[in-house]
Amino acid sequence: MYDIKHEAKGLVTHGNSACAGCGLELIMRKTMEVVGPDTIIVIPPGCAAMFSGFGKEGGLKIAGCQMNLENTAACASGIRAALNAQGNTHTTVLGFAGDGGTLDIGLQSLSGMFERGDRVMYVCYDNEAYMNTGVQGSSATPASASTTTTPGGKTSQKKDLMMIAMAHRIPYAATASLQNLNDLKKKLEKAKNANGPSLVHVHTPCPTGWRFNPALSIELARAAVRTGAWILYEYENGKITINNKLTELAEIDTYIGKQGRFKHLNAEQKTELGKQIKDNYFTYTSMLERMSIH
C-alpha cells in the first residue's frame, strides 16, 4: 500500500504537475470522487500519466497501472477477467485515456472490449490533440484547429467516438463536459454502475494546447456546449437523451475567438466555421432524435 507522504482531501494528490487550468485534472478528481477506492485504473502514456507518477512517487491513492498507448481497454479487460475469475464483482475497473489513446491508436482494443461486453468503465478525456507530446493533431482534433502537425488548420472533421460506441450497443455511453459538474458526476456514476462496458467522453479544455488563458477553462467548456461545438447526450440501454437541447446557439466567437488554435482563421473563415458548427449541431441533434425513436 502507498506510503502517504502528503495528505490530500480525496484520492488524488493536490500537487500534480498538470498544467495550470488543466481540464483533465478536474475530470480526474471528479472521476475519483465517483469511483472511490475500490477501483483499479489503467492509464496509458499521455497527460493522465502525470497521475500514474514518476519513480516511486504516485499521484493516486488507488491501485493502477500504466500500460501501452493502444491497449488501455484490453488491459482493463484483463483485470476484469482476473477479478471475475476470483469472484470479485464489486471492484470497478477503469480505463482512463485521452483522445489519441482512445480514438486513434487505442480504437481497436476499445472496440474489442466493447464488443465482448466486458464490464469496464472507460473515460476518454478529449483535449482534441496529442497534448503530452506537444500538441500534435489527432483524429479528435476539430476541423480548422491548428496543431503542430496541422499548422494550417486541420482539414478533416473530428472523429465521432459516440457513434462508434453506440454501434457496439454497449449499455451506457455519454458525452460530458466540465460546464456542469453534477451532470458529469451523474454520468460517471451511471458508467460505473453499467452492467457491461461504458464510456464517458469528456470534452477537456487544454490551456496549453488550445492556447488560451488558463482561467478560462470552464468558460470555454461552457462556450463549447452553448455554441453547439460540443453536444451533450447519453445513450442508455439503446435510448438516446440529448442533455442540452438548444434552439438558439451562442455566437461562435465566444468559443473559438478565445483560442490560439483558431487564431489563423480570418473573419470570413471564422464565420464559415461557425456556420458549419451550427449546421452540424442541428443536423446531428435531429439525427439523434430520430435515432432515439424505437
Binding site: G78, I79, A81, A85, S109, G112
Partner: peptide
C-alpha cells in the same frame, strides 16, 4: 474453470494475459 477472453489482436491477447496476472490470476 477459466475466463476466456476472445480478443481482437495478439497485442490485446498479451495485454489481457499480462494485466490478468498482475491482478492475481494465472493467465
Amino acid at each position: 474453470d477459466a475466463q476466456y477472453v476472445r480478443v481482437e489482436s495478439e497485442h490485446s491477447a498479451l495485454s489481457v494475459a499480462t494485466t490478468a496476472a498482475m491482478a492475481g490470476s494465472r493467465a
